[in-house]
Design a protein around this nucleic acid. Structure first.
Lengths: 187, 187
DNA sequence: ATGATTTGCCTAGGACCTCTAGGTAAGCCT
DNA sequence: AGGCTTACCTAGAGGTCCTAGGCAAATCAT
């Protein structure tokens, strides 16, 4: 009997691919075991339980997003940075719907602190260096940007914008224009 | 043996209460059957399956939200309407977290069309009558507002804002100010 | 190389959820 | 009171989650 060579990392990676294929809610211990050709019980020496698996997946997704956004942001500032951030964020969500859904999990504070979630807020803050904003306006703006990006992507995926013919892409571009002008003239 | 007097409506209502208590993902056919003191199988003459139950719950939540927002909007315009809409939306999400989560379900196009989801976009559009916006800017603005409201509430519930001491309430108020000024000077 | 230890995957099995098929009895109608 | 509809039942199959305990493969010590 050859061993499958399972590790928590390989399981998490496979779970991420599975999530993008069949949706985050269908990432189950059983499905993952089937994928590796082993029995369900075999996974429990690598992961604590199903929730643990999903948390690991969420942490992976958060790290990947942070990397992408970080790359996109390099060497840019002002509106250039804003648009680059937004595109990187949205394209990740489109390419990896399952991982993106995982990244929205409610993590307990300890896990969240260790994850790349904090890096995210930090990078949003970096965008604002190109604008004339200082605390506490900066924090308010970070929250507004994050909310809008997440909200847009999540409504888009839920099909909330299909009822109207206006192109989703066009509205997105206009939203970024609007946010840019808002940041330049913060009330 | 007295009958429990189940109907699809009573089941949906109970499911809504259950969702707010234990979370949308824990609304199961079994839990609902336990609540009424009947066997699981008894529910299947009223609902088609577990997914059907959740869809009914989502439709209920969408209708409730539409009612609330509609009430809040009555007789207001401009920033007054914007703030009223936003407060109604956010307070519903806070008071009924389980139903709000249900309302985010991806509904198939037919169900979505029949539900109050369309009424939602229509009302957002009503806000904009107080501002000087016309198509296609109006649609873009509707999408931006909806995204921001949903994004803020959903990140707030996920605990994304806890990492920073700045009050979540203060940022929300500032976000509404910002959106108002954005709508008044749409680029 | 051989024996000892660790560790990866196994079987067995319990608890819970979903859903179908078919049966019994409660309530309504005439 | 008899008949019809329908609300709820029992029985049971199949899936997911997870624990306990066992065997064997890989790794390490001698």
């Amino acid at each position: 009997m050859a061993r499958a060579g399972l590790t928590a990392e390989r399981l998490t990676q496979a779970a991420a691919e599975l999530a993008d294929e069949v949706g985050f809610e269908n990432v189950t211990v059983s499905a993952l075991a089937r994928h590796f050709g082993v029995k369900d019980a075999s996974l429990y020496s690598h992961i604590r339980n199903a929730h643990d698996l999903r948390v690991r997946l969420a942490v992976l997704a958060l790290a990947e997003m942070a990397d992408r956004v970080s790359d996109a942001l390099a060497g840019r500032s002002g509106k250039d940075a804003l648009v680059a951030f937004a595109q990187a964020y949205r394209s990740y969500a489109h390419e990896h719907p399952g991982r993106y859904a995982a990244a929205q999990m409610v993590l307990d504070p300890d896990t969240a602190a260790l994850s790349a979630a904090s890096k995210h807020a930090e990078m949003t803050r970096a965008i604002l260096r190109g604008y004339d904003l200082w605390e506490p306006d900066q924090t308010d703006a970070v929250r507004l940007l994050h909310s809008t990006f997440h909200g847009y992507v999540s409504l888009e995926r839920a099909g909330a914008f299909h009822s109207h013919p206006r192109g989703v892409e066009a509205s997105w571009t206009r939203a970024l224009d609007a946010l840019d002008s808002l940041l330049r003239a913060w009330p």
